[in-house]
Each structure stands twice: as C-alpha cells, then as structure tokens.
C-alpha cells in the first residue's frame, strides 16, 4: 500500500513539474501544425541566434574538453602542492550562481576594468561579444568533463601507460594510443553533457552578452526576448527546439553511459 502511495506521489510530482510544462510547450508549438514552427525558426533573428549559440557552445566545449582531460590527468596521475585546492575549485561553478559568474567576468574583462581595458587596447572586445560569452559558458560547464573522466582514469590505473612506456612509446604516443582510448566513452559522456549545458546556458551569458538582438543573442536569450515581446509562437518554437536538443543529449548520454 505504502509502495503504491509513493509511486502515485512520484508520478504526480514528475507530471506537474516536468511532463505538463514541457508537454504544454510542445502542444502550443505544434498547435497550428508544423508550418508556424518552421517559419518561426527560420526567421533571420532565430537563425542568427542559432549560429551564435552554436559558435559559443562549440568553443566552450572545445576549451572544456582540453582543460577537462588535462586537469583529470593532473588530478589522477600527479601529486603536487595545491592538488586538493584545485580539486575543490573545479566544483565551484556548480555552487556559484551563473549571474554572479557573469558579473565577475564583467568586473575583470569589462571595458573599464584593468584586464578588459588592456585587451580592448589590442582590439579584443570581451564583454558584450563572443569571447565573453564563451568565457561565461566555459565557466559554468567547467566541471562536467573533468568529473566524467576522473573516475574512469582512476579505474584504468597507470600500468597500461607504464607498459606502453617500456615498449618505447613517448608520453604523447602513450596518451593517444592508450589513455585516450581507455577514457573515450567517459570523455564522450562528459562532452555531451558539456554541450547540453553550453547550449542551454542562460544566466551568465545574459549578463555578459548585453542581450544585443541579432548580435549577441543566443537561443535561450531569444526565447526570453520573444516571450517578453509577446511573440509567443517564436518563443515556444525556440523553446521546443532547445527541449529537443536536451532530449537528444539525454538519449546520447544514456547510450554512452553503460560502456563508460
């Protein structure tokens, strides 16, 4: 009986929290058929938002993949002073609100801040431009690759790498031929999570982008801006597109997980 009750509560909870809202968005999006959906997503602003989102997300994923692999190897294979601190710092982005991240970046890289001013004098604009949005996205998605790779790297151990060394492989050869194949599923899992997080990021990007329509507007910002301007079809269409991406990544991670 208690089991039944729990099940009902759990289902109701998920229904009102997840299924109903997402279902309604999809319902509203496709309420008038596929035509308006396609139309809304092919408007110049929507296409531009897609492009900005993709650019920012790809750079952020690339940066976090390189950083993630490097840091994971550093944490698992090496001992150095400050290792525990680094380990703790990596999880910081999970705890800090993205809005705070955005503000902090403005404090450092804004036009009138020391670092930002210097970069500006070299012709690099960070805040209200792509570099800033990439930085913000990198920050919020920082732990995902590291945390996916670390346990697998630990489990893999270093004996295979040592065996490769004694067989004449250099560090790079060992990394490419032994370590990377050993962590490939975990890495793919981390990269997909990181990609999903990057595509969906709102808060930090909202702050550093300046929300310039057709310039620094990402898909999430587009949804919000269209909604505020009573263009509900466009808002819902873009929201559905984001939800679809989320579902695809969810399926991908489910597919990658058991092998990792």
């Amino acid at each position: 009986m208690a089991k039944h009750g729990l099940r009902v509560i759990a289902i109701a909870y998920l229904f009102f929290l997840l299924v109903l809202p997402v279902g309604l968005i999809v319902w509203r999006t496709f309420g008038d058929g596929l035509g308006p959906f396609v139309e809304a997503l092919t408007s110049a602003s929507a296409v531009h938002a897609f492009q900005v989102t993709l650019t920012v997300a790809l750079w952020a994923v690339a940066a976090n993949t390189v950083f993630g692999i490097g840091t994971a190897i550093l944490l698992v294979r090496h001992n150095f002073p400050g290792k525990r601190l680094l380990n703790a710092l990596i999880d910081l982005p999970m705890a800090v609100s993205p809005v705070v991240v955005g503000l902090a970046l403005i404090l450092v890289y804004g036009k009138f801040a020391p670092v930002g001013g210097l970069l500006e004098s070299w012709g690099v604009q960070v805040i209200f431009s792509t570099p800033g949005m990439v930085l913000a996205t990198v920050f919020v998605a920082l732990p995902l690759v590291v945390r996916a790779v670390v346990p697998v790297l630990e489990e893999l151990g270093d004996e295979q790498e040592q065996a490769a060394h004694t067989l004449g492989a250099s560090r790079l050869q060992t990394f490419l031929r032994i370590t990377l194949p050993g962590i490939r599923w975990a890495l793919a899992y981390g990269v997909v999570l990181c990609l999903a997080r990057s595509l969906g990021e709102y808060g930090a990007v909202a702050v550093v982008s300046g929300r310039l329509v057709d310039q620094t507007q990402t898909l999430t910002l587009f949804v919000e801006e269209r909604f505020q301007n009573f263009d509900q079809p466009a808002a819902f269409a873009a929201a559905t597109a984001l939800a679809l991406i989320a579902v695809i990544t969810l399926l991908l991670t489910k597919f990658l997980r058991p092998k990792g």
Binding site: E159, Q160, Q162, A164, H165, T166, I178, P181
Partner: peptide
C-alpha cells in the same frame, strides 16, 4: 623507460584492453 629497451611484465598483466591480442603484441 621509453629508451631503456627493457621488457616489463606486470603482475596484473597491464593488457591493452581496447586492442586485440595481435595488436597488443604488435604495439
């Protein structure tokens, strides 16, 4: 170790799990 030209065999084999027996030996 890369330059010493020694063969090392580990207690727990340290087999390259993602490579076939042939590719392991060929490494």
């Amino acid at each position: 170790p890369q330059r010493r030209n020694v063969g090392f065999v580990f207690q727990h084999y340290a087999a390259f799990k993602h490579l076939t027996v042939f590719r392991n030996v060929a490494f």
